[in-house]
Design a protein around this nucleic acid. Sequence first.
DNA 1: TAATTGACCGATC
DNA 2: AGATCGGCCAATT
Length: 122
Amino acid sequence: MADRSATERIWAVVAAIPFGRVASYGQVAKLAGQPGRARFVGQALGSAPDGLDLPWFRIVAADGRIALPPGSEARRQQIARLRAEGVTIVGDRVDMDSAGWAPDLDELLWGPAGLAPDEPLE
DNA sequence: TAATTGACCGATC
DNA sequence: AGATCGGCCAATT
């Protein structure tokens, strides 16, 4: 697996998002080595085959808003899925302060990925 | 082939 | 806090 296309690289980053965490499109793009191409992330997800079982629902807008169109079935499922993982969602927003994913350094500061996200850190 | 679209982002007003 | 604008670039029309 040497020459992965940008799309496949994005899939890999999305797949690397830990349970109970969310990441923004721009962040995924940056981690995939393509800063500034946030929109491409959305396309990559829409083009992702179901076989990958990609956690697409862990991707939200930079402000924590659900990027999917209101009233859409996919959006409703995204919210349900995130809540099922213990992510706090108020209105149409995710609490990025507690559920937002950060680069590996944060895992060292915040603890291993198995940490229960319900627990406020303060 | 050109124009339009889109699961966005950041700065600015 | 909301709205506007430019940038980004592959897929679709």
